[in-house]
Design a protein around this nucleic acid. Structure first.
Length: 108
DNA sequence: CAGTTGACGGCCC
DNA sequence: GGGGCCGCCAACT
């Protein structure tokens, strides 16, 4: 059923879940898709709780600069890079080429 | 109920 | 190009 998330958190989770493989999205982008562009910080908090790491590829979410968050510490930030590379995302000097791998959202 | 925190974003130096 | 400060909003204590 088409679940309509009402809480900001659930909304953010839905957006992150829609991130296609081989692409990455910035916190601000996810926040904007979730409904508000200023939720950037809330997005970070939402992924922090990450109720479903298998359903929510939080590692596909990076900063606007395309850099992985150091606070990820999910076994090491390098771990996130590794996962993204496995998705086909190319990393350059520790950052992603956003203009190439940023999720091309059909968002209006 | 109020205060603090936090996986960011944007602007300034 | 790199580093630092402020601002935004929701959740947590």
């Amino acid at each position: 059923m088409t679940q309509q998330p009402k809480n900001s958190f659930e909304r953010i989770y839905e957006v992150v879940r829609r991130i296609p493989r081989g692409k990455v999205a910035s916190y601000g982008q996810v926040a904007a898709l979730a409904g508000n562009r200023r939720w950037s910080r809330v997005v970070g908090y939402a992924l922090h709780v990450n109720p479903d790491e298998e359903g929510i590829p939080c590692y596909r979410v990076v900063t606007k600069d395309g850099c992985v968050s150091s606070a990820f510490a999910f076994g090491g930030a390098n771990r996130q890079v590794e996962l993204l590379e496995a998705d086909g995302v190319e990393f350059i000097d520790g950052h992603v080429d956003m203009k190439r791998f940023q999720w091309d959202t059909p968002w209006i």
